[in-house]
Amino acid sequence: MYIMNYSIYAESTPNPEVMKFVANRMIADQSIEITTLKEAKGISIAEELLKFPFVESIYLSANFISISKTGTIQWEDIAMQLRNFIADHLNSNGIRNYTENISLDKTSVVNDPKHEKIIANEFTDHEKEIEALLNEYIAPAVESDGGAITLNYYKDNIVCVDLKGACSGCPSSTSTLKGGIEALLKRKVNPDIEVIANEK
């Protein structure tokens, strides 16, 4: 039986320090941001990528890997090397789900209907409403840019969100937070809402 190999292409993101490497098939059923080898344990592609001295963090989701690099090197010097490495690694390991053995406490679940119950149990009614709006209106756009924005909490008219992947440290994230998310939530939920980013 013929099995199609993984092919990878690189795509720039609004964050100049992050490149999105897209596969032609799914590689993960959960979304996870990884910044250390300890966090990468059990996820072979992440363990190997973090060994490159210029890789700072990895955001793994669905059919792509967003890689954040150190500021001292240019993408033109490393993008092809990373693209080839990812393709070779995926093809040498066969078709698999790279996040199947990780626990949910390590992940940031984004737009995954299997985990709606888990999210719903943790959030208040207002937070559930905000999370649903983020998933419907914001998540598809930021995921296409190699990132994710998820709700952390809502309290006293403050909506705190987590920025992951290409969104973390992105120069345009402030305009996304204020012009996109805050404007949406002011219209749909409460005109007094203010959106802030979680400072990790």
Rank of each mutant, 00 (worst) to 15 (best):
M26V: 10
V109R: 09
E182Y: 07
V195A: 00
A148W: 12
K41C: 03
I78A: 05
D29C: 05
A87Y: 10
I130Q: 03
Y9K: 13
D77N: 11
V22N: 11
V110S: 03
A120H: 11
E122F: 06
I65T: 06
I73S: 03
M1E: 09
D105G: 06
E122M: 08
Y2T: 09
D125H: 07
I119Y: 11
F54E: 09
L184N: 12
A183K: 15
D112T: 04
Y2P: 05
H115S: 10
D125A: 12
D112V: 02
I95T: 09
N5M: 11
L163H: 03
N63Y: 01
I3V: 12
L82C: 08
S103G: 09
S44M: 11
T107K: 03
V110C: 05
D162Y: 10
K155T: 07
A139Q: 06
L37D: 14
I34P: 10
N15P: 04
K41D: 04
N5S: 14
I73M: 07
W75F: 15
E47T: 10
V110H: 12
D29G: 04
L185D: 12
A28V: 00
I8M: 13
E48P: 02
T107P: 00
G42A: 03
I27L: 12
F85I: 11
N24I: 00
P14N: 13
S66Y: 06
K200V: 14
A141I: 07
F64L: 02
K69H: 12
S12H: 08
G42P: 00
E11V: 07
I138D: 01
N97W: 03
P191S: 06
V55C: 05
A10F: 09
V109L: 15
N111A: 15
N135Q: 13
T35C: 15
Q74A: 13
C167H: 05
E76G: 06
C170N: 12
W75K: 02
I181T: 08
T72H: 10
K20F: 09
K69C: 06
I118S: 10
V55H: 04
L104P: 00
E48Q: 14
G165Y: 11
G180W: 11
Y137Q: 10
N5C: 05
I32V: 15
P14A: 07
I158D: 05
N24S: 03
V142R: 09
E33R: 15
G147W: 06
V22P: 06
E194G: 01
L90P: 00
N5E: 14
N121T: 10
I158M: 15
I43R: 00
K188R: 15
G94R: 01
D162Q: 06
S44L: 12
A148E: 02
K155I: 12
I65C: 02
G94S: 03
F54L: 04
F123P: 02
I193A: 04
